[in-house]
Design a binder for these strands. Structure first.
Length: 492
RNA sequence: GGUCCGUUCGUCUAUCGGUUAGGACACCAGGUUUUCAACCUGGGAAGAGGGGUUCAACUCCCCUACGGACUGCCA
């Protein structure tokens, strides 16, 4: 994928760097990004966007997009949740490279690194019990002191170590500051004396997230960590692990979270949270990708685009710093454009998948065939798949066509007799739009009525409803025989 | 409480010191029409507040307010 657009600013600054320091023109490391959800439920819509950004960036830069499941918390991780996440990503069309990595399976490696840090003197054994720490924190809070816990074992003589369970804590620097050069947030500075010695290895020998992410990201060769800005504070402590091990720190990009329509953090009461919920609501995946990518990222005034275009445009510096709200109206609008632009067979395929996941009965072969033939007059008007199916009712249904209340009402004595007079004209008609238009125009004129008067009972007869696509489109799609039969049914 | 991040129309956003602050969704009005949509035209609608810096600030700096994240042997 050629780089179509690049921040002008960045190009200028790179040029400047080259002029002042010609040396660092080392070959750029290929981009490696990853999405690392924890398997505690479904794929959250915010997680879906994080995955999307990682995917766009990797794919747009000829890089690699990896997937890792952060399942070190055994109590909260379930195989079902992992499966749900994979399903969500697959539906969104975000394909990852290589095998899915299980963080838990790397636990021995994590423990090795923890011991390595111990040997290097950048970590130490802490024998404090959780109860001790909890009571310390409770007391500190009550007295309004800092709850920052400094282990008494930090500089203890190993000879004094008791024979009790211990955790391995990072021996974090107590002075100076840690600077995060974030591609989205800019330069963020943390005072080291405000950061505690995080636990790297639990007393049961399992690694904590803080250690595991760093080790895995390093081992997997991740060059760009694009994740929610709820991790921004963590980045400082994680940097210390990189430094302790002498590893290259990745490029950080902490993106703002997505909020609900009311501006509050997205939660259950907002309804649809999982990516799969959006699939069951019948939004096309291409539209979801388009809409989600515009939440917090922009490329000038471009609103409607394909993922291929987004890949060519996507740069970290174009990501905003403020949280964005979910707007279903705009989502629908974008999705409508994607349905309209969709290829008929692909749309049919997606509609079928939608019916299955939303627990509805799939279309029969005959219905699929009908939908395919009707697609041309349907797809411009539907924003979602349920809407598309609703508008396709005339071709999905079969005789005898069920009439709804309004349709029954419009088929009164007068209009039924009009329909009876109409059928002979249709029997001999050439079945083209032009010929049909000529017939109906003449027929309406002969009866001294406008075409609208004629169209209403026709909609009722053909679709059983009075809100339908164009009557000409319906007749052309269902064909001459079926049209005449339906009109005769209604006129009887 | 502490640390960190954020704040342009109702919403998503453009703007990288000089613009009548632009676009899109939504909304309102009109047009088109074969119902509903779609479509076309037009309209209202924004720099949180206060201080600086500057010839000039939405843009840079500080303070306040509001919102958020983190502050775990969760991830």
């Amino acid at each position: 994928m050629p780089r179509q657009a690049q921040s002008r600013c960045k190009m200028v600054s790179e040029r400047l760097i080259c002029m002042t320091a010609p040396a660092p023109t080392l070959p750029k490391k290929p981009v490696v990004t990853r999405f690392a959800p924890s398997p505690t439920g479904y794929l959250h819509i915010g997680g879906g966007r994080t995955a999307l950004f990682n995917w766009l960036y990797a794919r747009g830069h000829g890089g690699t997009f990896l997937l890792r499941i952060e399942d070190t918390d055994r109590a909260r991780s379930t195989p079902d949740a992992t499966a749900a996440i994979l399903r969500g990503l697959t539906w969104l069309g975000l394909d990852w490279d290589g095998d899915v990595v299980s963080q838990f399976q790397q636990k021995d490696r994590h423990a090795d690194v923890a011991r390595d840090m111990l040997a290097r003197g950048s970590a130490y054994k802490c024998f404090c019990t959780q109860e001790e720490i909890e009571s310390f924190r409770a007391a500190a809070e009550a007295e309004k002191r800092s709850t920052l816990f400094i282990s008494p074992w930090r500089d203890a003589d190993p000879a004094t170590h008791p024979d009790t369970p211990f955790v391995i804590r990072m021996k974090a620097p107590r002075t100076g500051q840690t600077v995060i050069a974030d591609a989205v947030q800019g330069t963020v500075t943390f005072q080291n004396d405000l950061l505690d010695d995080m636990v790297c290895l639990r007393s049961d020998g399992t690694p904590t997230y803080m250690l595991a992410v760093v080790v895995d990201d390093h081992d997997m060769g991740v060059t760009h960590v694009i994740r929610g800005d709820d991790h921004l504070n963590n980045a400082a402590r994680q940097t210390m692990v990189y430094n302790a091990m002498g590893w290259d720190v990745p490029v950080w990009a902490h993106i703002p979270l997505i909020h609900g329509p009311d501006g509050k953090k997205l939660s259950k009461r907002h309804g649809a949270l999982g990516v799969e919920d959006y699939q069951s609501m019948g939004y096309p995946a291409a539209g979801m990708r388009n809409y989600l990518s515009r939440l917090g990222w922009s490329h000038g005034d471009d609103e409607f685009f394909t993922s291929a275009q987004a890949m060519g445009w996507f740069e970290l510096e174009d990501i905003g710093r403020a949280p964005a709200r979910l707007d279903f109206k705009k989502l629908e609008h974008i999705c409508g454009l994607h349905i309209a632009a969709g290829e008929n067979a692909a749309l049919l395929h997606e509609v079928q998948a939608y019916l299955v996941v939303s627990g509805q009965t799939a279309l029969t072969d005959a219905q699929s065939d009908g939908l395919l033939r009707a697609m041309y007059c349907l797809k411009d008007r539907a924003k979602t798949f349920p809407e598309l199916i609703d508008k396709a009712h005339f071709v999905l249904t079969s005789r005898p066509v069920q009439l709804d209340e309004a349709a029954t009402k419009s088929l009164d004595m007068v209009s039924r007799s009009m329909l009876r007079e109409l059928t002979p004209h249709l029997q001999t008609a050439l079945w083209t739009r032009e010929a049909l238009e000529a017939i109906f125009t003449a027929f309406a004129a002969a009866h001294g009525v406008g075409f609208g008067i004629l169209a209403a009972p026709l909609r009722a007869a053909l679709a059983g409803r009075i809100v339908t696509p164009s009557v000409y489109d319906m007749m052309l799609v269902i064909g001459q025989t079926e049209t005449i039969s339906r009109i005769e049914d209604a006129a009887a």
